[in-house]
Amino acid sequence: MNIFRLSGDMTHLMSVIVLLLKIHTIKSCAGISLKTQELYALVFATRYLDIFTDFVSVYNTIMKLIFLATSFSIVWYMRHHKIVRRSYDKEQDTFRHLFLILPCLILALVVNEKFTFKEVMWTFSLYVEAVAILPQLVLLQRTKNIDNLTGQYVFLLGAYRALYILNWIYRYLTEKHFVHWITWISGLVQTLLYADFFYYYINSWKNNVRLQLPA
């Protein structure tokens, strides 16, 4: 464990807490893409298959349980909570995430470190996480009005990935033969997807204007 990874995990935790607080307290999920939330639930469900078989550390197990619980409860809130679901704009959130899931599954079957069920599922979860934010970014560009909680949520998610890249650089420098192209490339792609959002988010923050993404 290093400071980059710990702060990355904490930033990731913050992002889901911000989202849960927004949905739970103001009972609204306006501007949030259910498709992205479903993709994240899928990411954690396929990545943490070994939660009860391979014990890494107490921290690791607790964080996995938190991410599983929060991602599934956010999906539940947006789908079934009688008040929250009313604020979900399904007309705008139309990204066909199946078109993301299938290519990731095929790629995971072809490009992986070991052709076993667990390994393919783990690799699949990496690829899905890399593209999971796309429906949310598309929705933000459509709905124009980005409330600052949603903006903070996306910003924290991007920051968590950026910190993970620093973590991989640190581990590469300190642990010999720590080379994992699949993890690194999918993580890099994911972080790059946030690049333009970061640009507009920081600009809007600097000029103290509402965050507007270009059409």
């Binding site: 996995k64 973590n167 033969h177 720590f178 994992h180």
Partner: peptide
């Protein structure tokens, strides 16, 4: 420790 992969990461 788990084999040197990123599996020990979240």
């Amino acid at each position: 420790t788990p084999d040197q992969t990123t599996k020990d990461e979240l």
